[in-house]
């Protein structure tokens, strides 16, 4: 059961009231970023809006939305959730 460390930023951090969280995901079949997204939504339903617009970066590398099903998550990986910020 891989443990995935999730870093939350900006509005996602504000809504979840946490700057990081740990997700436990199944390893057979191996979990993907898409599974992590679904698990995050279950854990934090209030993120439904902000997750749609956020960048997901696995181990600091951007995951294209189309690749989320094939991007496999391994134990100890880090997923950053980066919403767009608008202020200036």
């Amino acid at each position: 059961m891989p443990l995935l460390n999730v870093l939350l930023f900006a509005r996602a951090r504000e809504l979840a009231e946490a700057s990081s969280t740990t997700l436990t995901l199944p390893d057979d079949p191996p979990a993907s970023v898409a599974d992590a997204r679904a698990e995050l939504l279950t854990r934090f339903p209030q993120l439904s809006g902000v997750l749609q617009t956020s960048i997901f970066a696995l181990n600091k590398t951007y995951v294209k939305r189309d690749d989320e099903r094939v991007a496999i998550v391994r134990a100890g990986d880090e997923l950053a959730v980066v919403p767009p910020i608008s202020g200036g």
Binding site: A10, R11, V50, T53, R65, P84, S86
Partner: peptide, 25 residues
């Protein structure tokens, strides 16, 4: 290309609504 989905109203994070630490910008 990076943000194909715009933030929902209220999620955009503007300084007027959410505040900003003065030294940050």
């Amino acid at each position: 290309c990076l943000f194909p989905t715009p933030p929902a109203a209220g999620d955009a994070g503007t300084c007027g609504a959410s505040g900003v630490l003065g030294v940050l910008p």
